[in-house]
Design a protein around this nucleic acid. Structure first.
Lengths: 220, 220
DNA sequence: CAACAATCTCGACACCCTGTCGAAACCCGC
DNA sequence: GCGGGTTTCGACAGGGTGTCGAGATTGTTG
């Protein structure tokens, strides 16, 4: 509930202590309906009428709770965002464990977050191309993971465990982009993909060699 | 012109030697209009009416040439596909050069192909989430690059230059996915990105360390 | 308990977009 | 100058979005 979209008719009454017998229920019903329908077909194919009917109200009534279909998605994304940020945060705290375990944790949390919210993630990936708000919110989530990675790389370099090389930021962006695309492809069945069971191992392998690498390619 | 969508009214007359004074012109005019408009705003926001008017015909007349807006995109994508396949193909032939140069070539061709057709690539990335034909054609393009990479990795391993490790296929998928996402993000200004000038170098660095890697991470 | 205001609901409307149909105009070889 | 393929478009049907204003419902308050 941080972004500008906020529900329409209720924006001004949000903080009151009483009332709204059916209002909150309805808002939640719309969100629940959206999540339910999204697991069955792409978000783009779900009409506002579908959401309204699913929540037991008429289409115009829908607009009392949300200004548009995208606003529903954005609210759903907010939840994922919070969870993803939390997941990214906790990994940094584990300093005691060995590096391989820590990196594995980072990657598998990323992957798990995607998978746990498959429908929302898929819908956002699509909506972000047309909706600036979705694009920015999504970018912010990614940015968190990138920064988390960057910090960890720098720490490893400082303690002499990882060699210098690419700017940590660039490396972090590249590796997280790989994770995003590979994980997405696995979930969406979109393009060349890695077997679901191997995804984390494959990604980890590339991460480790890129971060701790020591060889340059031999000549011909 | 290989896929099923083919133009509507002209399907049966495609191979004839005479006639069609204005027909072919119009078809090209539609394609040209699409490319022109796509550079200014997202494909999703361009209506069939826009394309028709741009080509100097009415909306119903558009349907004589293409069965839908997506069919136009698909035709545009066909061109990119051919160019991309050609680019992927030529890299494999250069056996004489040193590995680093070959890999760099592979990556930068990929990147250049994307950049040269920015608008089409962006539109396809969006359309592929809703249109199975676009999705499959796009996946096929990616698959070519993956196979090209896979073959090259295996060759390096056979000659003892690269160590064994991940299945070549998985590694190739992961690295190409990284390229796709990083390149896309750079073009679309979408999410955390690497500076345009550094993209190829950053990607190359990760590729080389993943393919020729020799170290495992140190313990804590 | 009546009346007021906030909350909530929906029928009806304006608008935009897609895709189709059938009638008509056009161009060609004969 | 006629017949057949090619090309064009007005008009329609259907479905989606977003808005408006009138009405129903409900909690609060004098």
């Amino acid at each position: 509930m941080t972004t500008a979209r906020a529900a329409a008719g209720t924006a001004s009454t949000r903080g009151r202590r009483v009332g709204r017998r059916s209002g909150d229920q309805r808002e939640l019903a719309i969100l629940a309906t959206a999540e339910r329908l999204m697991t069955g077909r792409p978000f783009a194919e779900i009409s506002i009428d579908d959401l309204a009917r699913g929540a037991g109200i008429s289409r115009p009534a829908f607009y009392f709770y949300f200004p548009s279909k995208d606003a529903v998605l954005l609210t759903l994304l907010d939840r994922v965002t919070e969870e993803a940020d939390a997941a990214a945060g906790t990994v940094l705290d584990r300093v005691a464990e060995d590096p391989r375990t820590r990196w594995r944790e980072l990657i598998s949390r990323f992957h798990d977050t995607f998978r746990a919210h498959r429908a929302v993630v898929l819908a956002c990936a699509q909506a972000r191309t047309t909706n600036p708000e979705v694009r920015e919110l999504w970018a912010a989530v990614l940015e968190r993971w990138v920064r988390c990675t960057e910090t960890a790389i720098e720490a490893e370099r400082r303690r002499g465990a990882a060699p210098d090389g690419l700017p940590a930021r660039d490396l972090a962006v590249a590796l997280n982009s790989m994770n995003e695309r590979v994980t997405y492809a696995t979930l969406a069945g979109d393009g060349p993909a890695v077997a679901e069971a191997d995804v984390v191992d494959v990604l980890l392998d590339v991460w480790l060699s890129a971060i701790y690498r020591s060889t340059t390619p031999p000549s011909a």
